[in-house]
Amino acid sequence: WEITFERNGKRITVRTTDHRLLELFEKLWRNGADERELERLAEEINR
């Protein structure tokens, strides 16, 4: 799966075969987690 999240013109794409990681990322994104931390998390998930 691949999903791109966008907020205030900032886009972060997450790619993984584990839908649970996408759900976790989406919850953090929707709850306003720090964008720098989300970028780092996305990099780890995308590996």
Rank of each mutant, 00 (worst) to 15 (best):
E37A: 11
W1Y: 11
A33P: 02
G32E: 09
T16Q: 01
E44W: 11
L38H: 01
F5D: 00
N8Y: 02
G9N: 07
E26F: 10
A33R: 02
D34P: 10
W29G: 05
R11L: 12
W29D: 04
K10E: 06
E43Q: 12
I45F: 04
L28S: 08
E37K: 08
E35V: 15
F25Y: 02
L28R: 07
I3E: 09
E44Y: 12
A42C: 07
V14C: 01
K10H: 12
T4K: 03
R36P: 12
R30C: 14
D18G: 02
L28W: 11
I12V: 06
I12S: 00
N31M: 08
K27F: 14
V14G: 00
W1K: 06
E6C: 11
N46L: 09
I45C: 05
E2R: 00
R20G: 12
T13G: 02
R30Q: 15
N8H: 08
R11V: 14
V14S: 00
T16P: 02
V14E: 00
L41T: 04
W29C: 09
L28H: 12
G9C: 05
N8P: 03
A42E: 03
L41D: 00
W29N: 04
I45H: 03
R7G: 07
E6W: 03
D34Q: 05
A33N: 05
F25H: 00
K27M: 15
N8Q: 06
L21R: 03
L21T: 04
R40Y: 08
W29H: 09
W29I: 15
N31H: 09
T13N: 04
L21W: 10
R20I: 12
W29A: 09
D34H: 08
T16N: 05
N8G: 10
R40M: 12
L28K: 06
I12N: 00
I12E: 00
A42R: 02
L24T: 09
E43D: 13
E35G: 07
G9V: 00
A42M: 11
W1C: 11
L22G: 02
T13C: 05
E2C: 05
R15L: 04
T13E: 03
E39G: 06
W29M: 13
T4M: 09
I3P: 02
N8T: 04
F25D: 00
T13Y: 04
E2S: 01
L22C: 09
A33T: 11
E43T: 09
E6S: 03
R15Y: 07
E6V: 10
E2P: 01
T4E: 09
A42W: 08
V14K: 00
E37P: 01
R40L: 13
L21A: 10
E23H: 13
W29P: 03
W29K: 04
N8S: 07
R15F: 05
N46V: 09
F25K: 00
E37R: 06
L24C: 10
K10A: 10
A42K: 02
E2Y: 05
E44F: 13
D34V: 15
L38I: 07
T16I: 10
I45Q: 02
E39V: 12
A42F: 08
L41K: 04
E2D: 08
T13D: 02
L24G: 03
W29L: 12
D18P: 01
R36L: 15
R20C: 07
E39A: 10
L24Q: 11
G32F: 05
D18Q: 05
T4P: 01
A33W: 10
L21K: 08
K27L: 15
T13R: 06
E44C: 15
L22E: 01
D34T: 11
L21V: 08
H19W: 13
T16W: 04
E26R: 04
R15D: 01
F25R: 00
G9Y: 00
R30W: 14
F5S: 00
K10G: 03
L22Q: 04
W29E: 06
I12T: 03
N46K: 06
R11F: 14
L38C: 03
T17D: 11
L21H: 05
W1F: 12
L28V: 06
T4V: 15
